[in-house]
Amino acid sequence: MLHSTGVPEINADMGEGYGAFAYGDDEGVAPHIHIANIACGFHGGDPQTISRCVRMAKRHGLKIAAHPSLPDQEGFGRRDLRLGRDALRDCVLYQVGALNGFLAAEGLSLSYLKPHGMMYMQAARDEALAEALCDTAETFGVGVFGISGTHTENVANRRRLPFLGEFFVDLAYQDDGRLIVTKEKAVDPDWVALRLKRAVRDGVVETIGGVMRPIAFRTICVHNDMPNAREIARAARAALDDIKAETAQTISDSGALPQGIDQQGESG
């Protein structure tokens, strides 16, 4: 969902540990974001972890997205397992249903669906799998996260589901738009703030080759498994708050959104 000023919100994947295995800085990142994407069990997220994350999100007043995965706990949901449309739909429905039970116990509701890892990329590339994802989003009446210009967006739009394109502010982009996923080293928070402001104001992201690539988005992802995740999230939120203050009057006067933001209306 967009702020009334048109500034996008920040999301982060959470609850990706399992049992005694902790993963990511959930508590450190939560104060700086708007949407918690909670893992639902197939790559991370045992019942106690899901419950803890739901309560944490409630405490911070966050909206909640389900973060389902392919059935690939050993590979953390990143292996290219091939499921058909029906199997993938059932896989997603199973996980989102589990999370929804925990939300109901806390008097909360689900707002979005953001697939994890390989499921995210498969839905972007394969129309039938994008349909499977949207089947569950339609069942629960929620919006879908994805990459703008992919099958995920096309199917969501055709089915009149809210679509939120993502900008990955703490990852580098190749010249062709593909992401470079490296999380071993700390990321400069000043670099994050600079590229976030440029993306929102100018609608572009600088690639590793120095190309200013156009980007459209309605939400900004930060990763809580970076070595300095909470510093990144804090810098992103501060930059976003600066933009919100700077652009509020402009948007009020002209009705125009900053260049980087998708021109869709608010999602519910």
Score class of each variant (00 low, 15 high):
residue 3 H to E: 08
residue 4 S to V: 01
residue 5 T to I: 05
residue 5 T to E: 06
residue 10 I to R: 10
residue 14 M to V: 00
residue 15 G to K: 02
residue 16 E to F: 11
residue 19 G to L: 11
residue 22 A to L: 14
residue 23 Y to W: 13
residue 28 G to L: 07
residue 28 G to S: 04
residue 31 P to F: 03
residue 31 P to T: 11
residue 31 P to D: 01
residue 33 I to Q: 08
residue 35 I to V: 04
residue 36 A to F: 01
residue 36 A to G: 00
residue 42 F to V: 09
residue 45 G to H: 06
residue 46 D to Y: 01
residue 49 T to Y: 08
residue 49 T to G: 00
residue 51 S to D: 15
residue 52 R to Y: 12
residue 54 V to I: 13
residue 55 R to V: 00
residue 59 R to T: 14
residue 61 G to M: 07
residue 62 L to I: 09
residue 62 L to M: 06
residue 68 P to A: 08
residue 70 L to E: 04
residue 71 P to T: 12
residue 76 F to Q: 13
residue 78 R to N: 12
residue 87 A to Q: 15
residue 90 D to N: 14
residue 91 C to V: 02
residue 92 V to N: 03
residue 92 V to G: 00
residue 93 L to A: 14
residue 97 G to M: 00
residue 97 G to K: 06
residue 98 A to F: 01
residue 98 A to V: 14
residue 99 L to N: 01
residue 100 N to I: 00
residue 102 F to C: 11
residue 103 L to Q: 07
residue 105 A to R: 08
residue 106 E to Q: 09
residue 107 G to E: 09
residue 109 S to G: 15
residue 109 S to D: 14
residue 111 S to N: 14
residue 112 Y to K: 04
residue 112 Y to D: 14
residue 112 Y to R: 05
residue 114 K to A: 15
residue 115 P to I: 05
residue 118 M to F: 09
residue 119 M to D: 05
residue 122 Q to C: 14
residue 123 A to W: 05
residue 126 D to A: 01
residue 127 E to F: 10
residue 129 L to I: 01
residue 129 L to N: 04
residue 130 A to P: 01
residue 133 L to Q: 12
residue 139 T to V: 15
residue 141 G to Y: 05
residue 141 G to A: 02
residue 142 V to D: 04
residue 143 G to K: 02
residue 158 R to H: 10
residue 159 R to Y: 06
residue 161 L to P: 13
residue 162 P to A: 11
residue 166 E to W: 10
residue 166 E to L: 07
residue 168 F to A: 04
residue 171 L to D: 03
residue 174 Q to G: 12
residue 179 L to Y: 10
residue 180 I to C: 04
residue 183 K to H: 10
residue 186 A to V: 05
residue 187 V to A: 05
residue 191 W to R: 09
residue 191 W to N: 11
residue 197 K to Q: 02
residue 204 V to I: 12
residue 204 V to L: 03
residue 208 I to D: 00
residue 210 G to E: 05
residue 213 R to P: 08
residue 214 P to Q: 09
residue 215 I to Y: 02
residue 216 A to N: 11
residue 216 A to D: 11
residue 219 T to N: 00
residue 219 T to Q: 11
residue 222 V to T: 07
residue 227 P to W: 05
residue 232 I to T: 00
residue 234 R to P: 09
residue 234 R to T: 14
residue 236 A to C: 06
residue 239 A to S: 03
residue 239 A to K: 04
residue 239 A to G: 03
residue 245 A to V: 02
residue 246 E to G: 01
residue 248 A to M: 13
residue 249 Q to V: 13
residue 250 T to W: 06
residue 251 I to L: 11
residue 256 A to W: 08
residue 257 L to Q: 11
residue 257 L to A: 12
residue 257 L to S: 01
residue 264 Q to H: 15
residue 266 E to L: 00
residue 267 S to M: 05
